[in-house]
């Protein structure tokens, strides 16, 4: 199957996809690969692999700290790509999306990056500081390589922006649940359902919701209104300082998955 077909298939299972985020290289590269493997083995439908950057301005304290530690322990973009490749060698077949800021990618070379990411086995990219307005060269390369370039929409996006982002985004559309930075929050925003419905009037593409989702109950609630549920900071918190990071990650993902299947599992 082609990469974009594999990506589409994630959203055609009759239930919302569980899409954890984890920072590559946190706390070190080998451990992060074990954690990601455990996520895949415990029900993740797609995994977002974070590429560390020194100045992650869309991220809250949890992901900031994880990327800082990853960089201290030697993570680079090239090593992240090698990590992705070794995940494929470990037999992980679900779609893997690279998520990172634009500067390290420009420094690596845009064309080289897209080509190497394809070879390593990526399905696409999420670049939080690259709105569609600046993405034309990147998008052209992605289309040539059958890779997705996923854009984000925020709750304060006016109709013109929603139209632009949903048109330009490939693979799926990433709904930022709150106006803010990444990080676990106690409650989901009240107007999330309305926000999701508003976006759906503009597009038939799958929508995934991220930022602020931390508990199985929240994941279940979001799974009822979105095609994908993204959980990042809460996963990082759940593994940090545990005796066995991979086991903690597996348990965390399994719990979320079970909660999501309580609702939607029966009709599949």
């Amino acid at each position: 199957m082609k990469r974009n077909e594999e990506l589409h298939a994630v959203f055609k299972q009759g239930r919302a996809a569980l899409m954890p985020y984890f920072t590559l290289g946190y706390p070190d590269m080998q451990t992060s690969l074990d954690i990601i493997e455990a996520c895949a083995a415990n029900g993740a439908d797609l995994i977002e692999l974070g590429i560390p950057f020194s100045d992650p301005l869309a991220d809250g304290p949890t992901i900031q700290r994880s990327t800082q530690i990853a960089l201290q322990n030697g993570a680079t973009l090239a090593k992240c790509l090698a990590g992705l490749e070794s995940l494929r060698r470990r037999g992980i077949t679900i779609p893997l999306i690279l998520m990172g800021y634009i500067n390290p990618i420009l420094s690596y070379g845009l064309e080289q990056f897209v080509s190497d990411a394809y070879s390593a086995g990526a399905h696409g990219f999420i670049i939080p500081d690259l709105p569609p307005d600046e993405a034309a060269p990147f998008q052209t390369l992605c289309k040539q390589s059958d890779l997705a370039l996923i854009f984000l929409i925020a709750p304060n996006s006016p109709d013109e922006r929603i139209k632009l982002v949903t048109e330009q985004s490939t693979g799926f559309v990433y709904l930022v649940s709150i106006t803010g930075i990444t990080g676990a929050r106690e409650e989901l925003p009240q107007d999330l359902q309305e926000f999701a419905s508003r976006v759906r009037t503009f597009t038939d593409k799958p929508i995934a919701v991220g930022f602020g989702i931390s508990t199985p109950e929240q994941a279940r609630a979001v799974g009822e209104i979105a095609d994908g549920v993204i959980i990042g900071s809460a996963l990082i918190k759940a593994v940090t300082d545990t005796p066995d990071y991979a086991r903690a990650a597996g348990n965390f993902v399994r719990n979320i998955k079970n909660a999501m299947e309580l609702i939607t599992g029966e009709n599949t």
Partner: peptide
């Protein structure tokens, strides 16, 4: 120049 920012800031 340009606008390399999260979507939340675009509006």
């Amino acid at each position: 120049g340009g606008q390399y920012v999260p979507e939340t800031l675009m509006p």
